[in-house]
Design a binder for these strands. Structure first.
Length: 452
RNA sequence: GUGGUUGUAGUUCAGUUGGUUAGAACGCCUGAUUGUGGUUCAGGAGGUCGUGGGUUCGAGUCCCAUCUUCCACCCCA
């Protein structure tokens, strides 16, 4: 009887070809993070619900995956509890899968604050889970690659984020992208200018959609949220097409926005010391990002013609650990969404074809005696650092060579009675079909110099 | 969570108004070729048509439910 195999919705297997490419991306990100002084951190897949709940707003709580308690938990609940799901839930589950990496990080910082040398720079690459309804580029299990600095308000952190984004994307071969930057204070300034202070979050959600639904759509949405015609007219003077940063700055003079522009300019100035040809930074007044806890500069990275949304985002927060009852620790961080980066790179055909190979050489043979003889050569090849394998069964050459062909192995060592007699093995190139007879040490020299 | 959409061989897809034994291409296996892969030729295996109900003399085809896929909201990486 055949069992039906299926995955939970929104989850995926990553086969070898895909994993090689994912690792190519991850290795580059990890290398850059490390070179900028970030240290690795991992936290458990599950956290206590008390840690996760209430951190992402009402919407976020709905998207949390909860883990059922073990044992006969139902017995501990009362009849009353069973009349309403929300009441029962609190009795039968107290753990959940992590929703992002920032909250577990905050929990870690809060509980280890006396042992951490501040400022603390950490990176974290792990999957997160959301009980969302999946779409393309949207999964229920996906990876985040976070890098955060806590314990300093210095703008060098923001500057370094821009540098790291540039380095990673350059290594991946992505050239046409923009790092959109805005500042929470500037948005606050806009609010003040509109005469609607205190409505920052409604304003943010609204203008964040400018790209998608256009000015008319934003106008309608804000109107529905209770913004007056007068305030919307004022917003229009700021969002008008082609409005330069300087112009917006002068319009918003006397508001909180000035601090934001000052920080932005300092960051740009610091950036100039690194002499980038093009820093890809683009000020964007309509960038808002929904997350409520940002207090300073905010970032979002868009790859042109990539077919997916933002591949990276982040920003500064003044108070990471406040919700855990710990004194304010400021920080700034950002994250790469590698699932989307992957989709974008595939769409733009940016994966290097040559890097997709694991085994360099395969040893093929005719019978058990040749097989045993081959084991000695296999040992030497591996000691020399050459990725190699021996065909496990004694079968016809046709089949063994077919295996090498399908797996993309470029070199084959053939061992038969003739080779055993002389000690000169046959090295065959699967690409050219050329064959050479030589000892195993000479083969190793040939293969290592070719790679070096 | 709301509304819509999709599902047939390992993969991509045909399958007429409901009618005999559900097809193709590619892939896979075997042989031509017992010391040589890709190409070619010959043969072969592989399907409870997503799952469970229902209508019908008869369902891949119609109806309902459920799961899955993709899309628009919501929100987000």
């Amino acid at each position: 009887m055949k069992q039906h195999t299926s995955l939970p919705r929104g989850t995926r297997d990553f086969g070898p070809e895909v994993m090689m490419r994912r690792n190519f991306i991850l290795d580059n990100i990890r290398e850059v993070f490390t070179r900028y002084g970030f240290l690795p951190l991992e936290t458990p897949a599950m956290e206590n619900l008390s840690v996760l709940e209430g951190k992402y707003g009402e919407e976020g709580d709905r998207l949390l995956f909860k883990i059922l308690n073990s044992g006969d938990f139902l017995r501990k609940s009362s009849i009353e509890d069973r009349k309403e799901s929300s009441s029962l839930v609190s009795k039968i589950t107290d753990k959940g899968l992590r929703y992002d990496l920032t909250v577990p990080f905050a929990r870690f910082v809060a509980s280890n604050r006396h042992n951490l040398a501040l400022p603390f720079k950490r990176y974290q690459i792990q999957p997160v889970w959301r009980a969302d309804r999946p779409q393309k580029g949207r999964y229920r299990e996906f990876y985040q690659c976070d890098a955060d600095v806590v314990g300093t308000k210095s703008l060098i952190c923001e500057t370094e984020i821009v540098l790291m984004i540039n380095e990673v994307l350059q290594k991946l071969g992505v050239t046409d992208f923009s790092i959109k930057v805005n500042h929470r204070k500037i948005l606050e300034g806009v609010c003040e200018f509109m005469g609607t202070p205190g409505q920052l979050s409604d304003l943010s959600v609204g203008i964040d959609k400018l790209d998608k639904i256009g000015w008319e759509g934003v106008k309608k949405e804000l109107g529905g949220k209770g913004f007056s015609e007068d305030s919307i007219e004022k917003l229009a003077t700021i969002l008008k097409d082609g409005q330069s940063r300087e112009k917006i700055n002068s319009i918003l003079t006397g508001t909180s926005a000035s601090d934001g522009f000052e920080e932005f300019n300092s960051m740009k100035e610091m950036l100039s010391s690194f002499e980038l040809e093009n820093d890809h930074v683009q000020f964007d007044i309509s960038l808002a990002r929904g997350l409520a806890y940002y207090t300073g500069m905010i970032f979002e990275v868009i790859i042109a013609d990539s077919g997916v949304g933002s591949v990276s985002g982040g920003g500064r927060y003044d108070d990471l650990t406040g919700v855990f009852g710990v004194e304010e620790i400021p920080g700034v961080g950002f994250s790469f969404g590698i699932d989307r980066l992957y989709d974008a790179m595939e769409h733009l055909d940016l994966f290097p074809v040559d890097d997709i190979k694991a085994t360099e050489v395969l040893i093929v043979h005719f019978d058990d005696e040749c097989f045993r003889y081959g084991l000695g050569s296999l040992k030497l090849l591996r000691e020399a650092g050459i990725a190699s394998e021996i065909y496990p069964d004694s079968t016809k050459l046709r089949k063994q060579l077919g295996y090498a062909d399908k797996k993309g192995i470029r070199q084959v060592i053939i061992i038969g009675s003739e080779e055993m007699k002389t000690g000169n093995l046959t090295l065959k190139s699967m690409e050219t079909g050329e064959e050479k007879s030589m000892g195993v040490n000479e083969i190793i020299r040939t293969l290592t110099t070719r790679n070096g």
